[in-house]
């Protein structure tokens, strides 16, 4: 089973999904991420799905679950780099990913998190 690496940049965790995810890897990723958020005290999580070409309802739910878990641990989640085809598929599936923030690319995702944290809570 392939494990998705979780990178740390300042107080942001970055997950770049490069391969087709198996169900098992997704579950492992969710656990790893929760552990990592707690151990590093991260305030933001960025999931980069630039390389993801195919999505199904399972992946959609994964993104929502990760966002919900991270929020419980006081870290904001941003999904970045979604392809047009993927966005259309998710909409057709009826998954609007409520509660997940999105940005066009990694750079803008980081800027979004910086902006949110600098704003008064």
């Amino acid at each position: 089973m392939e494990r998705v690496p979780i990178l740390k940049l300042g107080d942001i965790l970055i997950i770049s999904i490069q391969v087709d995810l198996e169900d098992q890897s997704v579950l492992a990723l969710q656990e790893d991420l929760a552990d990592k958020v707690v151990s590093t005290g991260a305030r933001g999580v960025i999931i980069d799905i630039t390389a993801v070409e195919i999505v199904d309802s399972f992946i959609g739910r994964m993104l929502a679950t990760i966002a919900a878990t991270s929020r419980m641990l006081d870290a904001e989640t941003v999904v970045v780099g979604m392809r047009p085809a993927v966005a259309i598929t998710l909409v057709e599936l009826g998954l609007s990913l409520g509660g997940v923030r999105t940005a066009l690319n990694l750079e803008k995702g980081v800027a979004l998190l910086d902006h949110t944290r600098s704003a008064p809570r």
Binding site: V79, V80, A87, S96, K108
Partner: peptide
């Protein structure tokens, strides 16, 4: 609405 949601998913 679908178009708006799709654009939102892309981060716009």
């Amino acid at each position: 609405l679908k178009t708006v949601v799709a654009a939102r998913l892309m981060g716009a």
